[in-house]
């Protein structure tokens, strides 16, 4: 097996399997462990300047990655006009730098604040470092290999679909520069780490909060049955 098979077929499949299986297991059988594990109570100032830029930056960037995966044609159409392409690329880069600044501050906070060290697990450090590598390689790719929003649709959209449809085509990623390959590999490792780390909190976005009634009342005994 050559390196491409290992990095872009085997590891992705291991990661995706772990991601799906362990996440489901953990959500159902170990729900207590699923938490964003906030440490704002212990330290708030650095958290504000770290967490807000990091989260908004990374969430928006991940959404555009998802967009390029699902609607590549729409993205190409948008990019057809140069000014729109520049706008997209500049905002993407800005968000990336924003997230980078945030994650660097978060790492600094985790190491320097004594309170935060007390609530830090080894996995927290692993996740922060993987995220840092992911953002740095992403930003460097955006700077060094221009107009990713366009070539992504030609390379990664078919590659990721090939993984998802169980017909892997690692040859699409093989000729890419090592920096971009590192970005891909690192993100697959991040996906494998996901269910074992605090990253599981990503899957808990509470959109139902927008629609649920304000109050929740639960009966131990089902009232209606008793009333009959």
């Amino acid at each position: 097996m050559d390196w491409n098979q290992l990095f872009f077929v085997l590891i992705p499949y291991i990661s995706v399997t772990l991601f799906i299986a362990v996440t489901i297991y953990r959500s159902i059988f170990r729900p207590f462990t699923v938490s964003s594990l906030s440490s704002q109570l212990l330290e708030r100032k650095k958290l504000y300047w770290g967490s807000v830029p990091f989260h908004y930056g990374i969430v928006l960037i991940l959404l555009t990655h998802l967009l390029a995966l699902i609607f590549p044609k729409a993205l190409l159409l948008w990019n057809a006009v140069p000014i729109r392409l520049y706008l997209l690329e500049i905002s993407g880069l800005a968000l990336g730098l924003w997230a980078l600044a945030g994650v660097v501050l978060l790492i600094y906070r985790r190491i320097s604040v004594a309170y935060i060290r007390k609530v830090t697990t080894p996995m927290d450090i692993v996740v922060l470092l993987l995220t840092l590598v992911s953002i740095i390689t992403g930003v460097l790719t955006a700077v060094g290999y221009r107009f990713g929003s366009t070539w992504f649709t030609g390379v990664f959209t078919p590659y990721l679909w090939s993984i998802l449809t169980l017909q892997p085509r690692p040859e699409l990623v093989a000729p890419l520069p090592w920096l971009i390959q590192l970005h891909v590999l690192n993100n697959f490792i991040l996906l494998a780490v996901f269910p074992f780390s605090r990253l599981v909190h990503i899957l808990t976005w509470p959109l139902h909060y927008l629609f649920r009634p304000w109050q929740i009342v639960i009966w131990v005994r089902e009232r209606r049955q008793l009333a009959e």
Binding site: P31, H201, H208, V220
Partner: peptide, 24 residues
């Protein structure tokens, strides 16, 4: 996350810690 609820029988307000996601 809708983790806090009121018990219908006696009105005790409880946190379901399995659903709590630490948003505070």
């Amino acid at each position: 996350s809708g983790a806090i609820y009121k018990r219908g029988e006696d009105g005790v307000v409880l946190v379901n810690e399995n659903s709590c996601r630490a948003w505070r």
